[in-house]
Design a protein around this nucleic acid. Sequence first.
DNA 1: GCGGGCCTTCATT
DNA 2: AATGAAGGCCCGC
Length: 101
Amino acid sequence: MAKNYMFSSVRFSDFQKKVYRAVLSIPLGQVRSYSWIAKKAGRPKATRAVGTALKNNPFTILIPCHRVIKTDGSLGGYSGGLRKKRELLDLEKKIISSVKI
DNA sequence: GCGGGCCTTCATT
DNA sequence: AATGAAGGCCCGC
């Protein structure tokens, strides 16, 4: 498994890197599904692995894992608590509408 | 709604 | 290093 050493003290697996990149590309106030991320990471069927990678995410501020939900529309899970996830999404929604006006 | 499949990580040995 | 278990899921029946 290839490792990335661009930051000496922080090492992420290749898969993880792709997942994070995909998640970072999600616009403010929008959401994508786990399968979408998996596809973007080159492993369309690795949906569960995506979940693991996101959970492992060290910086929830930098990586908006709350914008990732299940394909059926339900929230899925969140390591910081589903409540927080809902609140964040709601907040982003409000931000969007405020700015749009 | 339930059961099987897929892929990566983590903990043990 | 190898093996087993678990996890923020998805698809078909």
